[in-house]
Amino acid sequence: MTSSALKGVYPILATPFTSTGEVDEQSLRELVRFQLQAKVNGIALFGNASEMYTLLDKERELIADIVKDEVKGAVPLVFGSGHTGLEGAVHLSRWAQSAGADALMVLPPYMVKPDSERMEEYFGAIAKAVDIPIMLQDAPIASGISIPVSMMIKLSKSYDNITHVKVEAPPTTVKITQVMEQSEGRLSVFGGLNGIYYYEELCRGATGTMPACEFPDICVRIYELFCEGRRDEARELFYSYLPFIRIGTIAGYATAVHKEVLLAGGVIKSAYVRNPNAPVDAILRKEIFDSLRGLSPLVLNRKAGSHEN
């Protein structure tokens, strides 16, 4: 897999749970089928929106096996493999490559904030442990750690497989421009934060986005329109969905928001979220669907899937 192959829309796959909190295999299969139906360019597993910080090792293995079985090589898979420490990240990264990851998305070590030397050692150890592309995940809101642009550039010069950055440090647009200008083509940039600045990121040179997974068709269409040079249409579509996208970034509730929409569309059978995430209440649920009035995302306009058969 080459660096240039990683572009487009790579939704972060939610982890469907049963109403009692176990991984729901059939809902997960249906969720993957929904992404493929939306013609996504790839799928990302074990991101923050996957509740990856709550998953047991055996659950990661189960999820990886199910997703691979459903995708069957149709699109690339990116596995999140960041950890609180170097040894854990190296272990997860090696496992991810052996489990079928085409690329890795790696948070810096969180919990204890690393200095520049520790951060460089951490990412360097991962880069030396695998031979697939690595995307540095700059997500300070979620992790509490920001990756300086100078560190991104240094790492990309030192390790040939550090090829991408997912910029989630607001305002993402400013940092994307900095990375684009300073990396001299060594780093491709993806946007994050649920796509809240998606259109502007594309205008600044981002090659893709990794949003949540309940509106993949909309993200794909925006990307297609933009690449076709139909920027006015891409901008109009993006701004029509922006109130909905914004609700999917509410701290503590974002994961539940994504799942409520997937549940309403019959993609998953339960909107259960694991602690420390909080479920939505009746008021927030109303706000979610009020933001979709007059809009027609695929999730609410598709035929029932196999889990209802």
Rank of each mutant, 00 (worst) to 15 (best):
M111N: 14
A264R: 15
V32W: 07
Y223D: 08
S146T: 11
F289M: 00
A127M: 09
L292W: 05
S98Y: 14
R293A: 14
V174I: 07
A101P: 11
K259E: 05
G266D: 06
N194I: 02
E200D: 15
A89V: 11
K72C: 06
I63S: 03
G195F: 03
P211W: 01
T173G: 07
V9Q: 05
T207R: 09
R204V: 13
T255N: 01
P276Q: 02
I63H: 05
Q182E: 13
V174S: 03
A264K: 15
P276G: 02
E70N: 09
E87R: 03
P243K: 12
I162P: 02
P211M: 02
T84Y: 10
S81W: 03
A234M: 08
T163W: 00
K72V: 04
R94T: 04
S296Q: 10
A49L: 08
S156W: 01
Y53I: 02
D232E: 15
R204C: 13
I176M: 13
G195C: 07
K72W: 04
Y53F: 10
E51A: 00
V149H: 02
N48V: 15
S4W: 08
L55G: 00
L298P: 01
L107Y: 13
T163Q: 04
P76M: 12
E121H: 12
K113R: 12
N41E: 12
V75S: 04
S27L: 05
A206F: 12
A271I: 02
Y239D: 07
I153A: 05
K68Q: 12
S150E: 14
I288L: 14
L295A: 04
Y197F: 10
E181T: 12
L155T: 14
A103T: 13
G42Y: 06
L298S: 05
R94M: 06
P114Y: 10
L107R: 04
A256Y: 02
T172R: 04
K128E: 10
P171D: 12
M119N: 08
V149F: 03
G124E: 03
V174Y: 04
D160F: 04
S116F: 06
F215S: 02
L300A: 11
T209N: 10
K128W: 03
R118L: 12
S93W: 04
E59W: 14
T177I: 03
R204N: 14
E51Y: 00
F238V: 05
A169Y: 05
L262Y: 08
K113M: 07
L193Y: 03
P276S: 04
F215N: 03
P11V: 12
Y159D: 09
I63W: 06
L104S: 08
K113Y: 09
L262E: 07
V167F: 07
E214M: 13
K39L: 08
M151E: 07
T172C: 09
P211N: 05
V71S: 10
P216F: 11
I66M: 13
R221S: 15
V189S: 01
R118P: 00
K269R: 15
T177Q: 06
K166F: 06
K157M: 09
C203H: 01
G252W: 02
E87Q: 04
G42N: 06
G305F: 11
E233N: 09
